[in-house]
Design a protein around this nucleic acid. Sequence first.
DNA 1: GGTTAATAGTGATAAATATCACAGTTTTTA
DNA 2: TAAAAACTGTGATATTTATCACTATTAACC
Lengths: 188, 188
Amino acid sequence: MDVLRKHIEKVIVLTDEEFSFVSSCFTPQHFQRKEYIFRPQERVPFVYFIVSGLTMLVYIDDDGNEHILSFAMDDWWETDFGAFLHQRQATMGLHCLEDTVVLKLSLDGYQAICAHCPKMEHFFLAKANGGHIASQHRILSFLMADAKMRYDWFLERYPSLVQRISKTLLASYLGVSRETLSRLSRQR
Amino acid sequence: MDVLRKHIEKVIVLTDEEFSFVSSCFTPQHFQRKEYIFRPQERVPFVYFIVSGLTMLVYIDDDGNEHILSFAMDDWWETDFGAFLHQRQATMGLHCLEDTVVLKLSLDGYQAICAHCPKMEHFFLAKANGGHIASQHRILSFLMADAKMRYDWFLERYPSLVQRISKTLLASYLGVSRETLSRLSRQR
DNA sequence: GGTTAATAGTGATAAATATCACAGTTTTTA
DNA sequence: TAAAAACTGTGATATTTATCACTATTAACC
């Protein structure tokens, strides 16, 4: 819970009482490597604050191929936001790449927090905007750069992540075939 | 202003007083076709609610090539969110493709609205999440589909927009060369 | 500890897409 | 309304990337 408070207080300041209420809405949970936090078609009752570990948000297409929307690690919020906010079936799955500890928050808890402590709505808004901005950067990378540049940018931006994921997964994230990525990483 | 109220009330309900305060924070402005609402490197003091017309959010790379992050028309909110929220220089430009009427809202106005009427923070959060979800769809389109499929999806999803933009711009939005798009649109 | 599964590299080839060059058309603007 | 600019289509060719096939290596699991 300490991690959560530090995380929130990068954006807004909370009194002890406020944080005590906020934290009472979260439930910790542990997942193992290779477990799914949720799968496509399932309900998504929670948004997850990732305390430790590593997950990926994946979309599975009609041919069964996995496409990686994002990796999420320490200090990130993740869920299928469309499904969570509208209480619908997931279109994506959230898959653990390492043993992962999360703090989960239900939609009711989320609304209780916003009602009880309006500052938190500001915090969530800041996070949502951050997510939007990050997505725009990724879109730009597809518009501007070829596979090699996208790979180089990823190395620059997430040097620590590169150590923790396979080339196969990185290729999928970057939108190139495994083989092409292998050839790119050689020529440097 | 009527348009704005209808737009907001798709998400939350406002009393007359509340809406009167909200609308007092907005200023209408008219732009002509080909004008820039803001350019890269400029300050971005406002977020823009587009009442009518058509704009595109563009990033200009080191070689001077324009890349289109999004088209925005009636009922959309647009700005360089990173620059607006942190009051920094724009990394993108907002360019009018048609004569465009906007309602602009400053960061102060935005914060006044949130302070005076907390429900509105919920509204803005819903919009931010909507933007995030839309971006994720676009990312998926790059991961899953080739140029032809992205083109077909665009036709399906935005049939009315297709009539209003040149193929050159559409190609740029889809991340393919003008020539390739021309050949794709022939083979169908 | 031995078997199975996942990961990684690489050659050969096919497919998708970009680039260059040019011509015809439409739209803008002075 | 004439000239300039922007848009569009298309051929020829080069480049990028995917796919298939195979091998080697490493990690996971009973």
